[in-house]
């Protein structure tokens, strides 16, 4: 049985999976160690915030707007059948704020940022820029990884809040066109439906999403294999791995929210 090549292949796959998880954990530990090491690269951090946050805004905004639009358009007929169109704002807002907004925006963010960071650090590794940095007296982990992970951690929540607002606006546009609901009434209903149990856990989990995306992107790039193929692989696996991690975190977050907020 142990000589079966298929079995051995699977065994290796599982083994490498666990090795990957272990390496990522070490990487995370190193992040938490280095984050307190002086000097903190504040300018680079701001620059990364701009790259990660502002530059993703258009993508996130368009995605969020369409999501709001589509959810409303597709749920409306069902609610109309019950004569319950007036429940539209509360339904859409709860689903967007709680789940759809954070997850979809984090996924687009992962697609953009994890691959971007993975490719950037990967190519820096391959062309020895990371070595050059170390030789010129700058701790590359501090300069490259800490700043990027922090930027992703802090920018994703901002993006999600803005994205949620845009998605709700998209939903309002549909409601206004189809049902002639005023802006004030719509958002009154939205905030009537929302509770702290919706918005606080949803916002907290986006910090973890951002952290996971930044960390995986940096991890894959930082330990990139030599050659251009390695860079491509780093970018690709950064997206795949971080998206997967995102759903795992989301699952855990929903679990915890369930316990603490009794929904």
């Amino acid at each position: 049985m142990f000589r079966n090549p298929g079995f051995m292949l699977k065994l290796n796959l599982i083994r490498s999976f666990f090795i990957e998880i272990g390496e990522l954990s070490y990487f995370a530990r190193r992040f938490f160690k280095e984050i307190f090491k002086k000097p903190f690269e504040f300018n680079e951090f701001l620059k990364q915030c701009f790259q990660v946050g502002n530059r993703s805004f258009l993508l996130v905004g368009v995605t969020a707007f369409i999501i709001g639009l589509v959810i409303t358009l597709q749920t409306r007929p069902t609610l109309e059948e019950f004569g319950a169109e007036s429940w539209m704002p509360s339904m859409v807002s709860i689903s967007i704020i709680r789940e759809v907004g954070p997850v979809i925006i984090a996924l687009t963010f992962a697609g953009r940022i994890a691959s971007g960071i993975g490719a950037e650090l990967g190519s820096m590794r391959v062309t020895e820029q990371i070595d050059a940095m170390e030789v010129s007296g700058t701790n590359p982990f501090n300069f490259l990884v800490v700043t990027r992970v922090l930027a992703a951690t802090l920018m994703l929540p901002v993006l999600v809040i803005l994205g949620d607002a845009i998605a709700l606006y998209g939903s309002y546009v549909v409601e206004n066109l189809k049902g002639d609901v005023s802006f004030q009434l719509y958002f009154n209903k939205v905030f009537n439906a929302l509770e702290f149990g919706d918005i606080i856990p949803a916002t907290i989990k986006t910090f973890f999403f951002g952290f996971a995306i930044g960390l995986v992107g940096c991890f894959k790039g930082y330990y990139c294999e030599k050659g251009t193929v390695g860079v491509g692989k780093a970018a690709n696996s950064a997206v795949v791995f971080s998206s997967m991690l995102l759903f795992i975190i989301d699952f855990i977050a929903v679990f915890i929210t369930d316990i603490f907020f009794e929904i």
């Binding site: 950037e120 190519s123 820096m124 940095m133 030789v135 010129s136 007296g137 700058t138």
Partner: peptide, 27 residues
């Protein structure tokens, strides 16, 4: 100790000036 890397290893995201200033930041 100066180190000239094989592929030049210039930082892609910075201008020539920033590249040259970079080693000065820490030294």
């Amino acid at each position: 100790i100066g180190f000239l890397f094989q592929g030049s290893a210039l930082y892609d995201s910075m201008t020539v000036r920033e590249n040259l200033e970079f080693p000065l930041r820490r030294h």
